[in-house]
Nucleic acid binder design. Structure first.
Length: 212
DNA sequence: CTGACGATTCACT
DNA sequence: GTGAATCGTCAGC
């Protein structure tokens, strides 16, 4: 887990997010790099786990049945902004808003593999040494990267919080679709294969028995 | 205004 | 495996 300088990183253009297939975008975000630059501190990691939330017909989504509230309003924005909300009063969960205005699609980033700023991540999380728990699970990702609910609505083209790509890609055989985590309340929709993970990657959340 | 609860994590048995 | 932590959000009164 040596630090890598972002010289070859290219910020993903807004049109990437504004396409209409949130499940496809969710899969394509696997292998991309989530970057924050807060107070001059660079932290970044490669995305290894995502979940798609597919708009008003998806019972697991906050925007199910076209529900519009102060909190969910940002999901209806044009794609390419952040949706960060507080869960269990403790955890800040980071999502990427996709699709065009008034179509509330979003993608939850559930795990990353640290690439840069591990020392800063350790400082933010209060952990003593870098391990797989540093950025495993959506709450830990936000904590390590310093993402807060106040960043909701932030434009992913900004220099403080964005997603980049480099020349690295995962082979398609290493990306697996599974049902989403913690959405049992969603009935039938809880079984939809909207979660994408990198095969055998230790940072992917859930039981290790999931490894194939 | 009030009460119930969550796209989770961690410590503990 | 079980339960506590902890607070903004939202539906209901």
């Amino acid at each position: 887990m040596k630090d890598v300088m972002p010289g070859s990183w290219r910020k993903i253009p807004k049109r990437f997010y504004q396409r209409d297939d949130v499940v496809l975008i969710s899969k394509e975000l696997i292998g991309k790099i989530l970057v924050t630059l807060f107070e001059g501190k660079l932290t970044a990691g490669r995305i290894v786990e995502t979940e798609a939330y597919n708009g008003i017909d998806d019972k697991a989504s906050h925007a199910w049945n076209n529900r519009r509230t102060n909190r969910t309003e940002v999901m209806y924005a044009n794609g390419g902004v952040a949706y960060v909300y507080l869960c269990y009063g403790i955890h800040h969960l980071f999502n990427v808003v996709t699709n065009i205005r008034d179509i509330p699609n979003a993608i939850l980033i559930r795990a990353i593999e640290p690439l840069a700023g591990v020392d800063v991540m350790l400082q933010r999380t209060g952990k003593l040494k870098a391990g797989i728990d540093l950025t495993r699970g959506p709450g830990n990702v936000s904590k390590a990267l310093g993402i807060h609910t106040s960043h909701t609505g932030s434009n992913l083209n900004d220099d403080t919080l964005y997603i980049a790509e480099d020349d690295f890609t995962y082979n398609d055989d290493f990306i697996i679709a599974t049902p989403r985590i913690g959405v049992d309340y969603a009935g039938e929709d809880a079984f939809l294969p909207y979660r994408f993970i990198v095969k055998n990657n230790l940072y992917v959340s859930g039981k290790k028995t999931n490894l194939l």
